[in-house]
Design a protein around this nucleic acid. Structure first.
Lengths: 333, 333
DNA sequence: ATAAGTCTATGAAACGCTTGCAAAGTATGT
DNA sequence: ACATACTTTGCAAGCGTTTCATAGACTTAT
């Protein structure tokens, strides 16, 4: 009637060895005579024995599980990272506990707590606003933590991402080369380091290098939704922008459709560049030119990085920067 | 140096009670004098004690974790379900272990095994092709299982989804009413019950009720990608179809863009209806008319259903059908 | 005052596995 | 044949909780 009745004891008895020996063969410990190993494996097979991972975890103090704190799985950007994470995790025999946080500090703390209670061996955090309290808990915990596709404004935590400053700078420079004097900078909340400290900086760099002066009127702070982009259009028009660099694909699609629906021609009269090169960029018309980030790889590398920390291997660099790129499609000249 | 050193034993000592008592206050067992409870809680707070979920799991034979087998998290359809699942799971104090299967039977079996090894209290399965071997394992396991947004061709397992037959039938009937004599049926693999046994049936029903004869030439079996849709266009043209019902949004976007890129006017010369009403339907131009499914809710309800099974509550119906709808946008007349 | 209940709290046995240590077995060299 | 050095095994002590059987301490009814 119960979940799992066959224990290591049963196997030991049937194979006429001690449970220690069974444990050794299950764990691939080499100190077992081949004949014994074979005998044990046969019994395991016959009894359909499956080691109880919970008991194992208790005894070994390892759960072979890592926690993943994600703002929202249903967002393509994050779910792409998650896919990379899971694939590598599987490769290294780990499972992932996925927990949505909505980027909400309270939930993050709460989630972190239950993850630690579950004795995860490591944590991957996605999110761009690390509250002081969360940082405190991160520091206090002995569990390895990696930020995936997210930046740590204080550079204390291990993280994997691209060089946002340079990427945005290039993209904006390109728009300027096309003759745009007024390029709008459209992003999510500026209290997220990725927007204020990195993307905006790249934007300013580009302006400076091209002798254009920074105009706050051209900076639009909103949230990451498609709808937010659509309704932003009138404001963009009144600011007189002729092009925009957008920090999120859905947002960019919204902005572009907002323009299109208002009868503006893209890219002839208005150019748009977005940042994440998610599927959406290819589905909209015109297709969106975009900074490209290896999303899957960022997740995969983060997880790989984490396995190193979990094995207490030495890692030379705390911050891994993956190469970014730029793909020109039809939303720019 | 280690993960977590404060145990229930430390708390018991500090509070001068037995560990059994500490356990009771932690678990909200009422048989504790309020004064004692208060004292214990204070110590817990002071020591920053956090119960070890693994040890708890071993002792109680409950992991408060459910496994989620998903074809691909980075697919919006599935990640939307996943989001609903996680939210409800959190509500009921469960965590989810997310495992990608790519819809591959081998991986599914393998994943199922590790989930069971981890002693998950329940499993939510997404996928439309349950291999015999997998079904066998499902049956053999005493762990409750629910299919989310997926159908069980044999109707043995609990599941939550919409009435695909009726939904497709309505959508196709609508296309026929618009005067289309040749409506293409475009779906993913026909060896998936959802396509062959349900959607296709709805399609045939609609034809029959409108005195149109079924023509195999108009049935297109492909995979679920955007690209697959794009390259399918020529074939659709040669079959002479003037409208299509598509089983997946990305696929539909591909078909439509394929038409558009070939200079065909949508919906004037060709109408398209899709099936999942994901974000994509609103992002493309023209926006896609779609059958609507409450994706988030399907996930949420599945998880709720699962909690009932895990609590051994009686459930009257094994199959929960959620209401579907239809939203007319600009890809149909 | 006594029997019979309630409440509270304790002790100690699981739960199923890993692992350090020691014992038993084998092989090798002389 | 014997000492030496491995190689294989078994023993038993945890790992941190839950939970069952009990025991004390109070109440309450008689």
């Amino acid at each position: 009637m119960e979940k799992q009745t066959i224990t290591i004891y049963d196997v030991a008895r049937e194979a006429a060895v001690s449970m220690a020996t069974v444990s050794r063969v299950v764990n691939g410990n080499p100190n077992v005579k081949p004949a014994t190993r074979k005998k044990v494996l046969e019994v395991i097979d016959r009894l359909d024995y499956r080691p109880n991972a919970v008991a194992r975890g208790l005894a070994s103090k390892k759960s072979t599980t890592v926690g993943v704190i994600i703002p929202d799985v249903s967002n393509v950007y994050f779910s792409s990272l998650a896919r990379g994470i899971d694939d590598v995790a599987t490769m290294y025999k780990y499972n992932i506990i996925l927990a949505n946080s909505d980027g909400n500090s309270q939930k993050e703390l709460q989630v972190l707590n239950t993850l630690l209670a579950k004795q995860v061996d490591g944590i991957i955090y996605m999110g761009n606003k690390i509250s002081d309290e969360l940082r405190l808990q991160f520091d206090r915990s002995k569990t390895p933590i990696i930020l995936a596709g997210s930046v740590d404004s204080k550079n204390e935590l291990g993280s994997v991402h691209i060089d946002y400053v340079a990427a945005v700078e290039e993209a904006v420079a390109d728009l300027i080369v096309h003759g745009n004097k007024k390029v709008a900078f459209i992003s999510g909340p500026l209290d997220e380091a990725i927007n204020s400290k990195y993307r905006l900086k790249g934007y300013k760099n580009a302006l400076a290098k091209n002798n254009l002066k920074y105009d706050e009127e051209l900076v639009f702070e909103t949230d990451y939704s498609y709808r937010a982009g659509e309704i932003l259009w009138p404001a963009i028009v009144s600011a007189g922008a002729t092009a925009a660099i957008v920090g999120d694909d859905e947002l960019a699609a919204g902005v572009m459709n907002g323009a299109l629906d208002a009868g503006v021609k893209v890219p002839t009269d208005f150019e748009v560049v977005t940042s994440n090169n998610s599927k959406i960029t290819e589905i909209v018309r015109p297709k969106l030119s975009s900074i490209t980030q290896p999303l899957y790889d960022i997740g995969a590398v983060s997880m790989r990085f984490l396995t190193k920390l979990m094995n207490k291997e030495d890692v030379t660099e705390k911050v891994v920067e993956l190469p970014y790129g730029f793909i020109k499609r039809s939303s720019t000249k």
